[in-house]
């Protein structure tokens, strides 16, 4: 379904989402006071999610919050059942709202004069791009994307992997996902790691971030906030690039997701951005 899968089944599902799921959600949200995504993410992080590759808990909280609203507004009981079944079955159903929340947070950080904080990371399957708060609205720094390393669905292997693709790295940009691995030890096996490696992954990201989240905390680190605000200067100084948990797409069009794993952006992006920053601010 995701990552460029293209088949009769996918088309059918998309139509259903448009006609049934979409309408039902829109009606449900219309009678709500909105869904507090920040609180949802914070709670999910305490339940073993990192908010990018693992959204099992978050999706269930999402369902819990929506269910009474859907029951109130979707009159057709068959459709109501389908919608709730779908949200509950899909362990990633909350990912899209989470990404939207992350985008809203990082956009708020963009355009701050003199700020070296990275406000966007995105990949399109060929290039990796970043934007920096204190630089231009449309000033992207790009370099060829790396190929993620990870675990593959049966029948697929590393040889099938496409270079890094997707806009979900906005979660890491906002300080969750790969940055919050310490709270999601269950998924370190993606890269053949141990729970200790999960802890170390988060500790490593503290090295390159400006601050710690006030809202997203991790029990395993004594409720320390997640590493937040990738600082260009620290990335270049230490040579540590952000760690991104990601799905892996097949390199052939139409196949879709074939695995999940870990990828990092090329260091060159950050070096280029730092040089541009120095030029803009006459450093």
């Amino acid at each position: 379904m995701r990552y460029g899968a293209y088949s009769e089944e996918v088309l059918k599902k998309l139509h259903w989402m448009n006609d049934v799921l979409g309408t039902s959600l829109a009606d449900a949200l219309a009678v709500s006071n909105g869904i507090d995504m920040r609180a949802l993410i914070a709670e999910a992080l305490h339940m073993g999610d990192e908010g990018h590759n693992r959204n099992k808990a978050g999706s269930l909280i999402y369902l819990k919050l929506l269910a009474p609203l859907i029951a109130k507004t979707t009159k057709d009981s068959a459709a109501m059942a389908e919608v709730m079944q779908f949200i509950g079955d899909n362990a990633l159903s909350v990912l899209n709202p989470v990404m939207a929340a992350c985008k809203a947070m990082t956009d708020a950080a963009h355009g701050v004069e003199g700020s070296t904080i990275v406000t966007t990371m995105a990949r399109n399957g060929t290039d990796f791009g970043i934007r920096v708060s204190g630089l231009g609205e449309k000033q992207w720094f790009t370099a060829p994307a790396e190929i993620p390393v990870g675990l593959f669905f049966s029948g697929f292997s590393q040889a099938d992997a496409n270079p890094d693709i997707g806009d979900s790295a906005i979660t890491e940009t906002a300080g969750i996902g790969g940055f919050a691995m310490a709270t999601a030890p269950a998924i370190v096996t993606f890269v053949g790691g141990t729970p200790k490696d999960a802890m170390n992954a988060t500790l490593e990201m503290y090295e390159i971030t400006f601050t710690e989240s006030k809202f997203f905390t991790m029990p395993s680190l004594d409720f320390r906030g997640t590493p937040t605000g990738i600082d260009l200067r620290k990335v270049v100084e230490l040579g540590i690039t952000p760690r991104i948990n990601t799905g892996i797409a097949h390199k052939n069009a139409g196949v879709g997701q074939v695995g999940a794993g870990l990828v990092r952006p090329p260091l060159k992006l950050f070096e280029d951005a730092l040089l541009a920053f120095a030029e803009k601010y006459n450093i």
Partner: peptide
């Protein structure tokens, strides 16, 4: 510990000025 900016002197001196 590693040398700042992987030993790239131009970047390292830039970083030093930014601090």
């Amino acid at each position: 510990w590693r040398p700042p900016a992987g030993g790239n002197e131009k970047l390292a001196s830039l970083l030093a000025r930014m601090k």
